[in-house]
Structure formats: C-alpha cells, structure tokens
Design a protein around this nucleic acid. Structure first.
Lengths: 155, 155
DNA sequence: TCACTATTGTTATACTATAACATCAGGAAA
DNA sequence: TTTCCTGATGTTATAGTATAACAATAGTGA
C-alpha cells in the first residue's frame, strides 16, 4: 500500500495496470513501447508526486541512460500527448495520469510541501466557465484546475 | 473602446480606475506608489493580454528604465502579491486583475493565439474540488482555473 | 538491398526566474 | 542635523526550465 492522492491504495496493482494500459495503447496505435518510454512512465508512477523534467533526467542518468534534456522532455511530452501523464503548470512538473483512458479535463490538489498530487476529473465542476466561454464565443480546447495547499501528512 | 475578455468596454475608464485603486491601496497600506510600480501596472493594463516578464523588461528598457530581470519580477510579484495582477501559469506570463478588491480565485479563458485573457471569478464553479479536498483533509490555499482555446477574433 | 519512418542521441541555445548584495531615498529618533 | 532604520531600486551572477536543429540508428516493408 502506498499513498495516492492522500489516501492509500494498492500501488503495485496501480502501477501494473498503468503500464499495461500504455503497452496496449502503443500496440493499438502502432507506437513502440520502448525501454525509455516505459522507464519514464515508471518513474512518474513510483510515487504520486510531481517530478520535474530534470528530476527524471537525474534518475535516467544514474541508470546509465543518455540524459540530455530533450530525452526527458520527449518522453514526458509523449506521455502527456497520449493521455498518460499531465503537466502541473504551477510546479513545472509532471505526474502520471490516474484516469487513463477517460477523456477528461483534470483537476489537481497539489501539496506545496511534498508535491504529492491528487487528480480528479473536473467534469461539470467548471461548467460555469464553459457557459462564460460560449457566451463570449470562446472555444475551449482544454482546461486545467490546479489547487495549491497542504496535505494532511504535511500538517 | 477596446477589447477586454473578448468584449468591448470603456478601456480608458478601466485603466484609470485600476490605477486609482492601486494608488489608494498603497496609501492605505503605507506602500509607495512609485514610478516603476505604476508603469509596470500600466503596461499590464494596456491590453488585456498576458505579458511575459521579459516583455515588460523590453518595454521598460526602451523607456530608459533599468532593465535587469529582477526589476520586472519584483514589480510583477508586488502586483500579484497585492491582488492587482495574476500569473498565468500556462503562459509563464502576467495579466492585470480585472476584479480588483474582490477576494477571489480566478478563472481564465486564454486565447492561445493572441494571449488575450478573460478573467472570471471561479467562485462556486470549483465547488466539487473543494468537496473532494475536504474529504481528503486537504487544505486549499489558492486555486486557479485556466482554460486554453481560441477567441472569436483569432478564428 | 533499399528506402522509409520512428525513435533516440547530441550539441547548442533560448527562455524563465531568483539569490545575493550594493546603493539610494525618505522618515523617525536622538 | 546627524544617525539610524526601512523600504525600494540597481546590478551581477547564476539557477532552473525548455526547445531547435541536426546526426545516428533501428526496424519495417517494398
């Protein structure tokens, strides 16, 4: 058991399912499930914490991979582009998606201390914004909700 | 008239009121309403567009001010800290607040083309997130909603 | 075998932000 | 009036984040 979004869960299963999802997604889409793609995703999945690109890079370096910035950004961008990770703008950091497969606008609770992030689907919670957008003839392509605060463990 | 948040408004009045608000705020709080504070705020108010710190810096430079990065960041941070501007994380940029005086969690409609930003108060629109937060015993200190898309003018 | 495409490797550089310390201006206290 | 204190600004250097551009490689199908 480990903490995800400030509550415990079966983390081993959680990681296995996520990796499995990425693998089948790659097969379906004709993309390669390469060592680096897998490894970067694993690193994000280790803890439910936001990791900076350069954190990833350090980990890759100690593991003997090539570790120039584009390596980290390429794989992180790959994961984000295909819905397996999100970027937390507020932290300039990345986190594994916990709602893989669900088309969703994410909402995050972000602990400013430990960078643990709980992801929820914002679904109708930003309905008001969508109303305002359509009133203004503004076409929303994606939206993000980021709430900063402190988690129970850090108080 | 000029565009604010994708609709027209009396921009001259809008700017005058905002500057006036900053001036009286400074008086009330015993802060100085200095040339640079005023000028940086004016630059943000010129158009309702997000400006990067280095955009501000370029403008200051052409106007003969000292233009090292800390100058821009100091005054932008001042405006943000006192509620007269917001940072748009998604763009690494800043925008004048259009709800001065109202304690609020802002929500933004951001045009990816022209960087025009419409600010609204998110008020109850992220209520669901607050519920989830209290369920998790997570204490939200501030929250931001950023929606990216394209504005009518850019389509 | 060849050619094509996706992926990875590498160098260099651009963009964003802050630490740290020096200087200056104005008001309060001696 | 001088001294001291505080808030604001000036300046240098550096840290942190991100991407452009191109080279090399590996696997695939023609």
């Amino acid at each position: 058991m480990a903490s995800s979004g400030f509550h415990t869960h079966d983390h081993v299963k959680c990681v296995a399912e996520a990796l499995g999802a990425l693998e089948s997604y790659c097969q379906t889409e004709g993309l390669k499930f390469t060592t680096l793609r897998r490894r970067v995703f694993e690193l994000l999945l280790e803890e439910h914490k936001a990791m900076g690109a350069y954190d990833i890079l350090d980990r890759l370096r100690t593991e003997g991979f090539s570790a120039q910035p584009p390596v980290a950004y390429r794989h992180l961008d790959f994961l984000v582009a295909h819905g397996f990770a999100h970027k937390i703008e507020r932290l300039n950091a990345f986190i594994a998606c916990t709602h893989i497969g669900a088309l969703h606008d994410p909402a995050f609770l972000i602990c400013r201390e430990c960078r643990t992030v709980s992801e929820t689907m914002s679904d109708s919670s930003i309905l008001a914004l969508h109303h305002r957008a359509s009133d203004a003839d503004f076409q929303i392509e994606e939206s993000v909700v980021e709430a900063i605060g402190t988690c129970p463990d850090c108080r």
